[in-house]
């Protein structure tokens, strides 16, 4: 399905959707679904649950769209998605899932959804990116959920601090300290990833040069 309203910006689409226009809302869904699904997957490490949570979150967003007053729709959506993920994690902790699932936080490589890939990528590159994605997921799974969320939003999805503060209803100071602690915990795990996947370094360096202040 392609965006039925490619010319409208988010705020006009939101205004239309607030008056009950489902197609306008669907344009927003198409713009944000990849980001929201990735946030849910990185938090839950479960492709099927992430899809369910994302769908529920978009339905909930449409029903509660009249409550959206701000200007940052992505942060508002992320708040709904993370809350839905926390609910899902709580359900799991109560024993809804089998002990095998709880035994280790390792991401199941077979369970991992397909990657958004460049058609020019060779099969080797695709396989390597898959391995990298799974390795990062393993490291994220070792963090408590609240720290994991901050690390995913800031470092994986590149949200600004103030967006994270809006989405998670935290102060900027709390975002800063949680992110620092999350990075501290991730440091050794991710260093091992880099050592395991030396060929992936090329990817890291390219990305890094563009972002360094």
């Amino acid at each position: 399905m392609s965006d039925p309203n490619p010319d409208l910006d988010d705020l006009s689409l939101i205004a239309h959707a607030q008056r009950g226009d489902v197609q306008a809302f669907n344009s927003l869904v198409l713009r944000y679904q990849t980001g929201m699904y990735n946030l849910a997957y990185r938090l839950l490490s479960d492709a099927a649950a992430a899809a369910d949570v994302t769908q529920e979150a978009f339905i909930s967003a449409f029903k509660n769209l009249h409550q959206f007053r701000g200007s940052n729709f992505r942060a508002w959506l992320a708040r709904i998605v993370t809350n839905a993920c926390y609910d899902e994690l709580r359900r799991r902790r109560r024993g809804a899932l089998s002990l095998d699932d709880l035994a280790d936080g390792r991401a199941d490589a077979a369970d991992q959804p397909a990657l958004v890939s460049d058609p020019e990528d060779s099969p080797e590159q695709v396989a390597q990116r898959h391995a990298l994605s799974a390795a990062i997921q393993d490291c994220l799974n070792q963090l408590p959920p609240t720290f994991r969320t901050v690390a995913i939003m800031c470092d994986v999805q590149e949200y600004a601090y103030d967006e994270i503060a809006i989405a998670l209803n935290l102060s900027l100071g709390t975002v800063k300290s949680r992110l620092s602690r999350a990075r501290h915990k991730l440091r050794d795990c991710l260093r091992a990833v880099r050592e395991l996947l030396p060929n992936a370094n090329r990817l890291f360096e390219q990305k890094d040069e563009a972002e360094t202040p």
Binding site: R42, A47, V116, I136, F204
Partner: peptide
Amino acid sequence: ALRATLRAAPTL
């Protein structure tokens, strides 16, 4: 480098 690794996480 840590941040770069995380940013390199492929999009699903």
